[in-house]
Design a protein around this nucleic acid. Structure first.
Length: 625
RNA sequence: GCCCUCGUAGUUUAGCUUGGACAGAACGUCGGUUUCCUAAACCGAAUAUCCCAGGUUCAAAUCCUGGCGAGGGCACCA
C-alpha cells in the first residue's frame, strides 16, 4: 500500500508553480479557514508581497491563479481582495485514493527508520500509578505510536529509580516500624503507596531517629549485596509489576526497563566522569562555597554541581551518564534479559546484573534522537544534561530532547473530598507523600461503573455481561487517555473527579460512538467494498471526508515533525464530527447502485482513517457500544 | 531577586511556530429533528474589551517591549 504523502507532493507542486521555494514555505502562505467565500483554501502570497499596492496585488494574484488552473487536484481558482481562492477537484482526489486504502492507511515512511528512544512513565517504584502519571505515560505512548506510524524506529524505555528515598521509606516502614509487608486483597502498589509510604512520612515528623534508619537503608541499597538491598529489590520488582499492570490496562507498553541501581553497578558515572574530565566539559572548583565539587558551567552562568565535595555523584550527574548511554557516547553498556511477554505480545526487556544475560538482545541505545517525557519542573536540570552532552560530543549536535509538560493538579473540590482543605485558590498540587492524589486504577474503575450503567441503558442489542464489561472498560480507558493528550501539554490540567465522570460529549465517547456507527453500517451492509465511481453531486459532508482522508498522511507527518499530539486530537474530533454530519444527511445501505458503492467505500475509508488516528491517542476502536 | 510557562464566550478550549477577509469548537442554556444504517447523534439561536498598555506593519489573538494575574523552577535532594 502507498505510504506516499500525496497531499504534501501536491503542495510542493503548487509551490514550484507559483515560485515558492518549498511546500513548507507555502504552508505559511495558505489559509484554510474560510467562512465567507466557501473555498477550500486561499493563497495570501500576493497580499504578502505587494504591501498596499492594490494594482500590483491584483496582478500578482491573477498570475498565481492562472498558473494553478490545470493542476490535477484543483477544480477552479478565483481572485478576491488579493486572495487566490481555490477549490479542490474531489473526483481527482477520490480517484487517487481508490486502491491505496490499506488497513494501515496513514502510515508513512517520513521517519526513514531513524532510531528514536522515548523514555516515559518512570514512576518511583514505591506506589500506585496516579492520575498525574497517566499524563506522562499517555503522552509518551502516543508519541511512540505517532512516530512508529510516521516511519521511525522507536525504542520505548521506562527508567526506574530503585535507589531513592521513596523506596527506602517503604523498607523503613516494614523493617523498622513493623508494618505488614502486604495486605490481603489490596494490590501491592496501592497498599505500599496509600498506607505504608504515607504512614512512614508522617512518622518522620514525630520520631527523628527514623530518619537515620532511612539513611541506613539508602546506604545498604546503594552498596547492594546484602539483605536489605535484596528485600528492596524484591519490593521494587513487585510494585513495578503492579504498575505495569495498570499501564497494560491503559494500553501502554515498553521495550526496556532500566534501573538506576544498574547505572551505579555498571559504574556508568565513573566512566562518564573520566570522559567528561578528559574532554574538559567539567571543572573542579578550587575555592568558594563549592570548593572540592566538580561542576558544569551552564550557558546561563550557573555552575551546576555534579559531584559533591565528598566525591559522590548527584542526580544530574547520573542523568548525564544515562543520556550519554542513550546516544552511544558512553564507553559502556548494560547487560539485558527478557523479563516477560506483555499483553500486546511484545517482549519486555530489562537491564540485569546476572552473568548469564542474553547476548542476543535488540540494540537499545546508539539512537539518533532521544525524547525524555518528564514534567516541566525538571526543565532546568534537563537543560544542563543537554548542554553537557552537546559539549562532550564536540561540535556535533546531539538530538537530546526534554519533552516537557505541565502537571495535573486537583481541583479544590476534589482535594476537599480527599480531606484536604488548603486549596482555596482553586487547585491543589498532587503529592504522593501527603496522600494528595487520585489513583489511576480507582478512577478508571469509577468511570467504568458510570459508563457501564449508561451503556446498558442506551444499548438496545442484547449483549452479554462480559461484552458490556469490555465496552465499558475500553471506553473508560479511551476517555482517560484522550483527556490527557487532547490539550496543549504546556497547560496545567485541573482534574475534578465529578467533572471527569460526566461523560461529556465530543470526547473519546464521541469518537468511539462514531467508530461503532461506522462498524455498524458496514456490518449491516454485509457487502464487499468495491472500487467506486465518483458521483457528480457530492455534498459538503462527502467532500470534507474525502479531503480529510486525502490529507491524513500529511497530518501524521506534521504531527510527527512537531511532536504535537493536539494536531491529531483536533483532526480526530473534526473528522468524527464530519462523519456524523454525513451520516445524518445521507443514507448508505439504502442508497442505490453506484451511489451505494461510493458511500460504502467512503464509510470504510473513513473508518480506517478514524481508527488509525484515534489509536495514536490510545482511543480503542469499538464495533458496537 | 533572577529564569521559564500560561492568560481567548459562564466553563473546557482551537487558532499563535509561518501576521491576512466576520476568532473556530465543545459543555452548559434556549428551540427543533426519530415511518431511514445506533438520538452517546443531527440542525438552529444567544453568548468573546482574544488580561491591560504601548510599539512594529498596508494588516496583530498571532511578532516586539512594558505591566498585571496564575503556576513552576533557581539544593553539595531525587
Amino acid at each position: 500500500m502507498s505510504k506516499k504523502n500525496t497531499f504534501g507532493e501536491f503542495l510542493s507542486e503548487i509551490a514550484s508553480r507559483i515560485g515558492v521555494n518549498s511546500s513548507e514555505e507555502l504552508r505559511s502562505l495558505i489559509k484554510t479557514q474560510d467562512y465567507k467565500y466557501n473555498c477550500d483554501f486561499s493563497i495570501t502570497k500576493a497580499l504578502r508581497e505587494n504591501k498596499a499596492d492594490k494594482d500590483a496585488i491584483k496582478k500578482s494574484a491573477e498570475s498565481i491563479s492562472s498558473s494553478l488552473k490545470d493542476l490535477e487536484f484543483i477544480e477552479k481558482t478565483e481572485v478576491v481582495n488579493g486572495y487566490v481562492n481555490c477549490w479542490y477537484n474531489y473526483k481527482a482526489i477520490m480517484n487517487r485514493l481508490v486502491g491505496s486504502m490499506g488497513e494501515d492507511y496513514g502510515s508513512t515512511d517520513y521517519g526513514a527508520k531513524k532510531r528514536v528512544l522515548i523514555e516515559h512513565t518512570s514512576v518511583n517504584p514505591n506506589k500506585a500509578i496516579h492520575i498525574g502519571h497517566t499524563r506522562n505515560s499517555s503522552i509518551g505512548d502516543s508519541l511512540s505510536r505517532l512516530l512508529r506510524l510516521a516511519g521511525y524506529d522507536v525504542i520505548v524505555t521506562n527508567y526506574i529509580d530503585d535507589t531513592g528515598a521513596q523506596v527506602a521509606d517503604n523498607v523503613v516502614g516494614i523493617k523498622f516500624m513493623g508494618l505488614p509487608p502486604r495486605k490481603e486483597g489490596v494490590k501491592i502498589d496501592h497498599y505500599l503507596g496509600d498506607e505504608v509510604y504515607i504512614t512512614v512520612n508522617d512518622a518522620y515528623a514525630k520520631d527523628s531517629s527514623l530518619m537515620s534508619k532511612r539513611s541506613l537503608v539508602l546506604k545498604a541499597i546503594e552498596a547492594g549485596d546484602n539483605d536489605i538491598a535484596l528485600e528492596a529489590k524484591e519490593m521494587v520488582d513487585e510494585v513495578l509489576r503492579a504498575q505495569l499492570d495498570t499501564m497494560s490496562r491503559l494500553g501502554v507498553f515498553y521495550d526496556l526497563v532500566n534501573y538506576e541501581s544498574h547505572i551505579l553497578a555498571y559504574k556508568f558515572w565513573e566512566i562518564a566522569f573520566e570522559q567528561l574530565k578528559k574532554a574538559g566539559v567539567i571543572d573542579l572548583e578550587s575555592e568558594g562555597e563549592k570548593k572540592g565539587c566538580w561542576v558544569f558551567q551552564a550557558s546561563n552562568g550557573d555552575k551546576k554541581i555534579l559531584t559533591r565535595s565528598d566525591g559522590t555523584v548527584v542526580y544530574a550527574g547520573k542523568d548525564i551518564a544515562y543520556a550519554m548511554w542513550k546516544h552511544g557516547l558512553l564507553n559502556g553498556d548494560f547487560r539485558y534479559k527478557e523479563w516477560f511477554t506483555q499483553k500486546n505480545g511484545e517482549e519486555l526487556w530489562a537491564t540485569t546484573l546476572d552473568k548469564e544475560s542474553e547476548t542476543n538482545h535488540p540494540m537499545f541505545n546508539h539512537v539518533q534522537r532521544s525524547i525524555s517525557v518528564i514534567d516541566i519542573r525538571q526543565s532546568y536540570e534537563q537543560n544542563v544534561v543537554k548542554e553537557a552532552i552537546n559539549k562532550l560530543s564536540g561540535g556535533e549536535t546531539v538530538d537530546y530532547m526534554h519533552y516537557d509538560y505541565a502537571v495535573v493538579a486537583l481541583s479544590s473540590n476534589t482535594a476537599k473530598k480527599l480531606g484536604f482543605n488548603g486549596a482555596d485558590k482553586g487547585v491543589m498540587q498532587m503529592s504522593g507523600r501527603k496522600g494528595v492524589y487520585i489513583n489511576a486504577d480507582d478512577f478508571i474503575d469509577k468511570l467504568k461503573g458510570v459508563i457501564l450503567e449508561e451503556t446498558k441503558k442506551k444499548n438496545t442489542n442484547d449483549l452479554s455481561e462480559e461484552e458490556y464489561e469490555k465496552i465499558a472498560e475500553d471506553i473508560a480507558v479511551s476517555t482517560l487517555r484522550y483527556e490527557m493528550v487532547r490539550t496543549d501539554p504546556k497547560k496545567t490540567i485541573v482534574f475534578d473527579v465529578d467533572e471527569a465522570i460526566k461523560l461529556e460529549s465530543k470526547g473519546a465517547i464521541y469518537i468511539d460512538y462514531t467508530l461503532s456507527r461506522m462498524a455498524g453500517i458496514l456490518r449491516n451492509a454485509a457487502e464487499d467494498i468495491q472500487s467506486p465511481e465518483c458521483p457528480d453531486d457530492l455534498d459538503e459532508s462527502e467532500k470534507k471526508l474525502l479531503f480529510n482522508i486525502f490529507r491524513f498522511q500529511d497530518i501524521v507527518e506534521s504531527a510527527a515533525k512537531s511532536l504535537d499530539l493536539t494536531i491529531i486530537s483536533n483532526f480526530v474530533s473534526e473528522f468524527a464530527s464530519d462523519f456524523n454530519a454525513f451520516y445524518a444527511k445521507n443514507q448508505v445501505i439504502k442508497a442505490e447502485g453506484k451511489r451505494k458503492t461510493f458511500r460504502l467505500w467512503l464509510v470504510d475509508s473513513s473508518r480506517k482513517v478514524l481508527k488509525n488516528a484515534a489509536s495514536i491517542l490510545g482511543v480503542l476502536p469499538l464495533e458496537r457500544m
